[in-house]
Design a protein around this nucleic acid. Structure first.
Lengths: 145, 145
DNA sequence: GTGAGTGCAAACGATTTGCACGGTG
DNA sequence: CACCGTGCAAATCGTTTGCACTCAC
């Protein structure tokens, strides 16, 4: 498939440049896809979706790109257990609730600026972000018991 | 090495029983070690330490045991990125600050009961735990720049 | 005695890496 | 045109699993 930059992609192009990253096809593709899918997704999700659309990037490239984007602050990564990180656009960032039973991940909106608790015991450190993972049992799993 | 239960281990024996787990050598060993090391450690840390002391449990067993203890609520696991979870005794549980530069993990004491933000958008779910990971740059890395 | 837990080794799956090529700035 | 980013495949690493054996209850 030939890749042509759409008008919407201009947006991402700009964002990449602002972040000091080069504008490349894989990066724009991943950003656009994350925007379109609008939620949290694993690297594998992203890769599969791209393969389905014949825009297959290498799995390795997907990981590299996601990593670059996370470094640049355009994308957030949440680690929710051994072996699977989820990614989402920084602008739609929220915290997560993970069900202990079915492993479902539910978004939890939180006031981003409201720092959950002051890390007073971190003298001299620069805290950029606080990521919260709630654990418990989701409504569905509670119901089926 | 012959394993004999020490007086101190009686403590763990009791804790295991209370949690409904059978009292076995690997479980007591891991609990005692986590207590002795008093901090957060990876499964590999634990395995290596045990091997050094000729009390080698299988790597697989260490993972199994840690998992059982987490299920039982005696141990807490924190996921801090791809490929490495850290474990610590539930009684010394705290949150973590992860340095973006050197990957160091620093403990952050937080009032455990003070729920960081109310997950009001989780109707019907039962929230057991809130785990917070702060990210940023630690004092040392800031200094060396 | 019976089933849960262990030990071992092999399987697995997510992520990383090395190297040659191509495209961006 | 220099270098960063990509594609590809193989390597790595944390973690899981299957099976036979042992031990706690």
């Amino acid at each position: 498939m030939v890749w042509r930059m759409s008008t919407a992609d201009r947006n991402w192009e700009e964002r990449l440049r602002e972040s000091g990253l080069r504008v490349t096809r894989p990066r724009v593709t991943v950003l656009a896809l994350l925007h379109e899918l609008a939620g949290h997704h694993t690297a594998e999700d992203i890769n599969t979706t791209l393969v389905d659309r014949d825009v297959s990037l290498t799995r390795g490239t997907v990981y590299n790109v996601l990593d670059d984007l996370v470094q640049a602050g355009l994308v957030m990564r949440a680690d929710r257990g051994p072996g699977t990180a989820i990614y989402e656009l920084a602008e739609t960032w929220h915290h997560h609730f993970v069900c202990r039973e079915c492993a479902a991940v539910i978004d939890v909106d939180c006031v981003a600026d409201e720092r959950p608790c002051l890390p007073a015991d971190l003298p001299g450190a620069q805290v950029d972000e606080a990521q919260i993972i709630f654990r418990g049992v989701c409504a569905d799993c509670l119901a089926s018991k």
